[in-house]
Write a protein that binds this DNA or RNA. Structure first.
Lengths: 340, 340
DNA sequence: CTAAAAATCGAAAACGTTTTCGATAATTTT
DNA sequence: AAAATTATCGAAAACGTTTTCGATTTTTAG
């Protein structure tokens, strides 16, 4: 079974391919009668335009590309969900690629997407990306590009992100308002800007409320993909400081959950003896006992906004209008649960 | 900045487009000297073949399509991870679509993928899909199709799935071997075959070990996307049967975790007083306290195998060889943790 | 040195669509 | 009835690649 082409329709109706094409596109120089006949036959034969031919001719693919560090992650799969739904609304399809947190893959995937002729690209950068030539290439090719979540200030394009520093500040301030004074922080790796900003927000909240910042209360947790790191850091924290510490703000929910497991095991009461505040509002935060307070990143909104901006730029480009880049900060929200 | 074409290369070297193309494709009727010159210039100019033109000419897209009910789900995002990695190995890209568990979307998305000229399609069917004309269309178009996880016996194509009945049988048998006698079952909706099979496995395990099947111990949980259903069913179970019940086998981990939350709250000891066994081996199962025993579905293996079969069929089709459909059962594994 | 064989190249068609522009036919105006 | 206008159509080029096949040149064989 071969797909139906304009040629088939034209031949059956005894008209030219040109007229058939124009009839379907509702050109004014085709009679109503012919238009009707063409449309009816096209419907009957289930005609769909060949995407390669259209792409070749019009230089547009109706596809956008997305590159994320990893798929298997509540935040990213949620963002992707929003992206796909926005794309679908506009009859667009989405090619997704995983950089696996490596620069080489990310670079290669940008090339692949460009060569596929995608009409726009969304990227959340890998932690290891320090060089931006691959992104400059996208810009040089005049393909709309929007960075989200993991962005870089060095690239001249639209960006959608949250204010990590402010969000962390609010979370820690909440703990302080609840009477906590010795607040530890489990911070993340030094690379991604996010964890630095969250740390800075933590520090600023302490200072603004007259609580001295104590570096001995900050623990570096390198391995974010596992909750054992949170577990062992919690143990270390108790060993180091004993009864003194009354709260922990963690750079993500995984670490907090590791800590909760440790405290549950040792019979250390949450939140009475120690309170916890996570970050990301992972699905799991609502499921663990006690449930975990966390900062909601509004992943759906990030995905939706980034995609909307991308399509604005795509439409500008098609109309030949100049493109103005935007930087949008998505609001975060404190979700308060039993852990504090 | 315009992409480089064969024409550009040909002109700069004073040769024909034909020769340039053949040089890059290593045809035997091009001299080594010309080949070298073409290849060097192509490298220098960063030439990449236009995907539309290649697609139009060769009738292949180097893209496969994937339709899943939802992206935001540990199982599906893991399968997708495997699919994307297998595709990448073969220089293929993946277009993903979400049916959102509706037949209409699934049907529409199949059409969109076909019209995009994808070289193959992987689908995990929506719960609501009862009609398979859209899949028959794929087969009629001679596009390789592989169903995974949520499959249908009525479609003549390759399939990759687990043996739900056997897996449930093994899980319940494990509980019995551990001395449990009154084993309840939280079952899922009636629609997807999976939950029926898991129920049947549960029932058969009881019967094979001389434990009478008691329908009063089976609870229907409709809402799988939330753990409140597991919570309330656990409460109901205790209200109905009190001390009598000593284990629960749940159709998924979400329900088990809801139940754990209830038992933790009421001080009902797990596994002493009641044991639990989940299904899917969700990431969360290892994180909750007590950690949850579960059936691992081997999502990575499902994705990998399905994709491998798809590419085999794609390659057969290209060579004009006949395609033989396969049905592969992926092994599941009991992951024993603290809940039993 | 000629004939046959081999090596090297390029013209042209094809994939299916879109769009420009010129041609013809039908209609209206003078 | 002739001229001008309008309505309707189709030929052809273009998008960039691949592949067939014929043409030319070079090499080898006789």
């Amino acid at each position: 079974m071969k797909p139906v082409t304009l040629k088939d329709i034209a031949r059956q109706l005894g008209i030219s391919i040109t007229t058939a094409s124009k009839a379907l596109k509702n050109y004014p120089d085709v009679s109503e009668k012919t238009k009707r006949k063409v449309r009816e036959l096209a419907e009957e034969l289930n005609y769909v335009p060949n995407a390669f031919a259209v792409g070749l001719r019009k230089q547009e693919s109706k596809i956008i590309g997305v590159i994320i560090p990893t798929m298997v992650h509540y935040f990213f799969s949620t963002v992707l969900d929003a992206i796909m739904k926005e794309a679908e609304k506009r009859d667009y399809m989405v090619i997704t690629m995983q950089s696996n947190e490596t620069y080489e893959l990310e670079k290669r995937q940008v090339d692949l997407l460009l060569n596929k002729g995608v009409d726009g690209i969304l990227i959340s950068l890998s932690n290891k990306t320090r060089d931006f030539k691959h992104l400059q290439k996208v810009i040089d090719y005049n393909i709309p590009l929007v960075l989200f979540d993991k962005i870089s200030k060095l690239v001249n394009c639209s960006k959608v992100l949250i204010d990590d520093r402010k969000a962390a500040y609010e979370a820690v301030t909440y703990l302080i308002k609840k009477g906590r004074r010795r607040i530890a922080h489990f911070r993340g790796d030094l690379n991604p800007q996010n964890s630095i900003d969250r740390f800075l927000g933590y520090k600023k909240a302490l200072e603004d409320h007259g609580i001295p910042y104590d570096p001995k209360l900050v623990y570096l947790c390198n391995n974010n993909s596992d909750f054992t790191d949170g577990y062992s850091s919690a143990k270390q924290l108790i060993d180091d400081h004993g009864e003194e510490v009354d709260a922990i703000f963690t750079v993500n929910d995984m670490l907090a959950i590791g800590a909760i497991n440790y405290f549950n095991e040792k019979g250390i009461k949450i939140p009475d003896r120690i309170a916890l505040f996570g970050f990301s509002n992972w699905f799991m935060a609502s499921v663990i006992t006690p449930s975990l307070s966390s900062v909601d990143q509004n992943a759906l909104n990030i995905g939706k906004t980034a995609t909307e901006i991308l399509f604005e730029e795509i439409s500008c480009r098609q109309k030949g209008e100049p493109i103005t880049h935007k930087k949008v900060i998505i609001d975060t929200e404190l979700v308060i649960r039993d852990s504090c």
